[in-house]
Design a protein around this nucleic acid. Sequence first.
DNA 1: CTAGGGTGTGAAGCAGATCTTAAGGAGAAT
DNA 2: ATTCTCCTTAAGATCTGCTTCACACCCTAG
Lengths: 307, 307
Amino acid sequence: MDRLPDAARLVTFARVARHGSLTSAARSLGITTSAVSQQMTALEAECGVRLLDREPRGAVLTSAGEVLLQRADELVRHLDETATTMAQLSGELAGRVRVSTIASGATSLILPAARVLDRTAPAVAMTVSVHEPQASLEALDDGAVDLALIDVYDHVPLALPSHLLVEEVLTEPLVLVTHRDADVPRRPTLEALSTHDWVLPPATSACGAATRHACRAAGFEPRSAWETEDLLLLVAAVSRGEGVALLPRRAVADSVAPVEIRRLVSPVLGRRLLLVARNATAQRPIVRACLDAIHHVGRRAPAPATA
Amino acid sequence: MDRLPDAARLVTFARVARHGSLTSAARSLGITTSAVSQQMTALEAECGVRLLDREPRGAVLTSAGEVLLQRADELVRHLDETATTMAQLSGELAGRVRVSTIASGATSLILPAARVLDRTAPAVAMTVSVHEPQASLEALDDGAVDLALIDVYDHVPLALPSHLLVEEVLTEPLVLVTHRDADVPRRPTLEALSTHDWVLPPATSACGAATRHACRAAGFEPRSAWETEDLLLLVAAVSRGEGVALLPRRAVADSVAPVEIRRLVSPVLGRRLLLVARNATAQRPIVRACLDAIHHVGRRAPAPATA
DNA sequence: CTAGGGTGTGAAGCAGATCTTAAGGAGAAT
DNA sequence: ATTCTCCTTAAGATCTGCTTCACACCCTAG
């Protein structure tokens, strides 16, 4: 071992390990599988040991690979932090911040925050993409994104690894959304709705899971009349009297279809909107500026009125 | 900052910082000054700040440079350790270990150790270069060498930075070397030699410094008849009766010229032979094998007889 | 069983990054 | 002034590492 090992190869290796296949890692790096394969071959030659077992479903680490992965992960973290240090050196507030957000956060928080940013840091621009929380977190880990706005529903757990910095923007209640003339008490409990038809987000979505969990806790399985992940369609269905729904307050705000919105007396349910960044990058000046702008909007956002 | 920073440039930057000039760093890296200059320009562009002030005597860090240096040094250390991890993965005992040694250690320790190594790890080869301790330590820091055998004389301090691993091989006395028929007591003290002529290594050498220090402590300044760093010449001069000398036991062993060797009754002086390696590399299997071989020789080396 | 999806490898050629060469400037030492 | 050291810059050479393309393998589905 005459020279220092090639850092780029180690970074790629860490990516391969996390993605579980050369192909997937290559996609996330924006290069060809072949390039990744060649890098791994070179790395294995450098080590004198096989690091990956090529299996039909992908590549899994050998025990030697596990050992090296530890160091490779540290290296990635260190380089990421170094990039932050470098960004702090000039302190200049200019550049692009890539943020991934849930749809309902985009309208109520990100868009207004972009306007705030135009005032406070005009040279900072946001590149926004809309994803589900899980996908946002992966994009964060891939370095494809600097910031993620996600939501977490009560009783629907979501793993947040410790290398991520999490800041709560706001908490909002889940409200009952019904047809205008629906036969629903003024101050409803969930139990009172056990016989109604429901319009549900899919069980795989956090909101759908939260609704089902709450209903079961209240002693019934919600009778599904409609199931869709399209929020507009969902509210439209409720508006036509197809059933009732349990949704975060802010998510309904944008809808055009006329519906009735009521606060549940019991149980009290909510979701939290969280800003997430890698620890290593959160202190970059332009990232910090974005975080602050979003928090600013979150703090002064008037909770929409509820009947 | 879209991608991770370029590790190679950071490594070069650390080297420049330590050497104090692009030219010197370039030499130690085996590339042109121009290449280093271009790398530093690119790194500064990446940071958006000047990292080095170019001054006529070399390059000195700006305050931003100081900040980045910290991270760059960590990076170098990490990569060095990673190289060790990689070497341990295969565990194979094969390759070249570059060792830098003082001349007197080469014959009495390194050469025999090479023979031991032929038995215990035949695929491991040593590349030996002979340097003064200070130069050896710098070669170690530059990664030009994996192992250094140096000596440290009593009362002649030598700075050993904490990132270096130090292992003592042996301690040996400084002995009085005289002409065969010299008028010297059988069991001499240093004070008794204040009126003799001396054959001295240069004051800049550790041995010369040690001799002078000891004489002054005994209350006299040694009268210098000959001054040379050439050990063979030095012993020859003593052999011809030009004066007496104080030398490490092992250093005289090789000489052909006939001399008398006496142990000083007082003061008791000695030097220690130390093996030094970077912490990050000491655990590489082949480096460890060399260390062990040298220790092995050191332990069973019969101290040469003294009259 | 073949087709089609996924995986990963490897040779060939190309492109861009990085190095060398060469020329030049600026300050310090002689 | 001359010469030395240190650094920069432009231009061209070199080389590493990427893409392309062809192929091999395994699994699953028809």
